[in-house]
Design a protein around this nucleic acid. Structure first.
Lengths: 252, 252
DNA sequence: CGTGAAATGTTCGTTTATGTTCGTTTGTGA
DNA sequence: TCACAAACGAACATAAACGAACATTTCACG
């Protein structure tokens, strides 16, 4: 298995040179181009490299392909949801905006609101709202996650605990039939829970693509949410539960 | 959707130089103008650059006009100072980088350092260093100041107090003959003082234009600084004082 | 020795990046 | 304001790169 012998070497070369070429590697190892292509495909699948025509480069920084794709996904639905959510945010509120493509869409709809105070752990949200001069922006600290511009970790939670918001706007990775709000990243879940705790009211924004998906970690229940902005009717049983919980569902 | 060997290189060039030209890139990579135009279009579509006639610039983001002007001011001197400062920063250090055009220049020179941990209260610094995959970025919280992308306030100080850095890199607004480091903004001064307190060593970066100016609030004395990176010899009396204090002066 | 699985090489139709050309747009200086 | 040159982007041709499928080699293990 000389394959596993080449992989570390390829990665090392990539780190030193910043890039690798199919031709160069084939010559270096004395194998055919196809073999190198297979190596690079595997390394790219594993996320260690990013494939380009003729070779590979180190994975790029923030807003990488995956994130850009996610942002494009259901972009129309997201914009509609964001519009109706923004309409429910009064001028003059203090609002927390969490990580996520749906929450970012809300930030875009807040560009013309007045006298806002927006607290966020999302660098993209801060960059978007810079253009609204009538909006105080507070960025909470944390480790920068290159994949989506999110700030996470202990520092983030500690900072959020110093606030009390009128309104929190959060997204999620998945939503199951019991009405449990789920996510993939344990660090992010800790942040989300803290946000809910520190907010007087919480808005959840999520397009219907999350209804069927699953994720391993629970943020909380829809019952803890005041208003849920989405783009499709909820499954009947869940809609009934929301009524009992007093959770308002708003479709655009 | 496409990717190219050139893209990361173009982005880094843009971050270091502030702009890129179609001609320059075409020559650098040995490809035709049309190819570079395609590259720039793709990068612009991805939101990583902003296209202009003849080339591209960094996306507008936080920086406003006044700030852009300040950044251009003495740009050469700043780059030189930054280079010599970066050369004194070992790989693997934990570094705090404060607000300021001089400190931002240092961040640009850290793009090829390895295994860094950079803590900053400057959104621009975070945006610059995103391109260095071998650098953990921590953003400390605070109120976003639109004029320069700085994060300031109580939250900032509280967050900084949770760290202990190998190295702090700070700038200043003015430097008087007594060796007192001065600034205009009281909030920023509090942050600067906290930074110095939490760092094992402190580097000051400042071009000579600050020598003659004055500012109302005192950050501290040059005596508390380990190394001062600048571009002109200090006035004789001050140079003598620095010698007594054990403050090293480094000219490029 | 055989055998089988994994790795590698080979072939070939398809995709992609690049160069070239040309009509259109943009910036600049009179 | 107008004219001119530079820059632009769309369209097409081409050569390189790609990946799937199949053939061959290598090597561990019975």
């Amino acid at each position: 298995m000389s394959q596993s012998f080449r992989h570390p070497d390829i990665l090392k070369t990539a780190r030193v040179e910043g890039k690798v070429t199919v031709d160069g590697l084939a010559e270096k190892f004395g194998v055919t181009l196809q073999t190198i292509r297979r190596d690079l495909s595997e390394l790219a699948d594993a996320g260690k490299l990013e494939r380009v025509h003729g070779g590979a480069i180190l994975p790029s920084g923030v807003s990488n392909i995956g994130y850009e794709e996610r942002r494009q996904l259901n972009a129309d639905a997201k914009a509609k949801i964001a519009k109706s959510c923004a309409a429910s945010i009064p001028n003059g509120s203090s609002v927390f905006i969490n990580i996520g493509t749906n929450t970012e869409a809300v930030a875009r709809e807040l560009l013309f609101h007045k006298n806002l105070m927006v607290v966020t752990n999302n660098m993209n949200v801060a960059n978007i709202l810079v253009d609204n001069a009538d909006c105080e922006i507070v960025v909470v600290g944390g480790s920068l996650r290159r994949s989506d511009g999110g700030l996470i970790g202990n520092l983030t939670i500690r900072a959020i605990e110093m606030f009390k918001f009128d309104l929190a706007i959060i997204g999620c990775s998945a939503l199951d039939d019991d009405g449990d709000i789920l996510d993939f990243d344990i660090q992010e879940v800790g942040v989300s829970q803290t946000i809910i705790r520190q907010a007087r009211k919480t808005f959840l924004v999520s397009d219907h693509s999350k209804f069927k998906r699953s994720a391993p970690i629970q943020i909380g229940s829809l019952g803890a949410i005041d208003t849920f902005f989405t783009d499709r009717k909820l499954p009947k049983p869940l809609a009934k539960k929301c009524k009992e919980w007093g959770t308002t569902i708003i479709l655009p």
